[in-house]
Design a protein around this nucleic acid. Sequence first.
DNA 1: AATAAATGAGTGAACGCTCACATCGATTAT
DNA 2: ATAATCGATGTGAGCGTTCACTCATTTATT
Lengths: 190, 190
Amino acid sequence: MARNGNKTKKLLARTALELFVRKGITETTVRDIAAAAGLAEGTLYRHFDSKDELAWELFHTNYTAFAQELDRLQQQYDPLKDKLAAMISQFCTFFDQDPVLFGYLLLAQHTQLKKVTPEMETAVTVLQKVIAQGMARREIPAGEVEVAAAMVLGLVLQVAVFKAYNRITQDLSELSEALVAACWRVLAGD
Amino acid sequence: MARNGNKTKKLLARTALELFVRKGITETTVRDIAAAAGLAEGTLYRHFDSKDELAWELFHTNYTAFAQELDRLQQQYDPLKDKLAAMISQFCTFFDQDPVLFGYLLLAQHTQLKKVTPEMETAVTVLQKVIAQGMARREIPAGEVEVAAAMVLGLVLQVAVFKAYNRITQDLSELSEALVAACWRVLAGD
DNA sequence: AATAAATGAGTGAACGCTCACATCGATTAT
DNA sequence: ATAATCGATGTGAGCGTTCACTCATTTATT
């Protein structure tokens, strides 16, 4: 067993995360990460097989954990509007607590999404499931689930992106209710 | 004067665009581009100063051209809802005509947006201008312009992203009216 | 003393870019 | 008409640098 738990591994992972977000994954070198963590280059390879594996672990761990948290939460609420409110509120909290991690998940999608197997649960699949159920129960008008999910997802996500770029000053959590209201107007249709 | 106009330059630019979208900018080598275009590596440097300049030219040319087209269009319509409909319709057409170019603008943002000066007109600034005007004229309820713009932008953009990933089968243009309706519900509020 | 953790110089491959040279079509001189 | 000349264009081996990764050695912990 490791003497100090996973302290060094966690430090490397967090340092890498921040550099990846600031400079991009490919543009961040292993030397950069080690130097920023105050460690030698070789140390990284004691904890990760490769730079690619580090980037992937950072992505898929948090990506699926977030999806599962959303799913767990969604099951505790009813009807659709309450499910949506709970999920959006959770998303806002997640973002406010760790904007850098959010930035990484967004950034890494382009590279890492290819490695995501179809049976993996993601935030998108949870959202689609919930919307499809809402349509089946006639809580919202029937329509294309994928289109509806894209609209709602984009609406929320882009506000977070603007916040990440400091185009918006409030915390996301303060906007949670406004986001739910807007999403509901989109889904409820006419 | 060039013998064959800019045929080679255009070929290189287009080839680079497609590789950039498929593999990422950093992951695409100058050798890759030249080989895919059926040319030698040195030829690229007859037409572009560097790989970076090529990536930037590809980005900013199309990025600003699209923003200016949106602005030109917006001025021809009134009130806000018609402006919005015209802009969204134009966006859908743009996407349907060249999804790869759209994919590049989306992908390159992370890297290239830092080089965009604040005085450059972008699709975002046009949208914000139009929404601010609509609020001033009381066509829609007053509120945070940035938040409203983010919501509308994300709603439309994410549907395009889903289409780019083949999660949606219809052409974007077929969804144009549904997008306008959804955006209007978001903006019109309660 | 034994073992796990950390080190950093070293390695080979890959990269962006250069440059001396070849090719071609157009222009000018004969 | 023909030849000589020229600049624009294309070529690809080669250069210097950087990168991810390795491994013999040192350091820290029990």
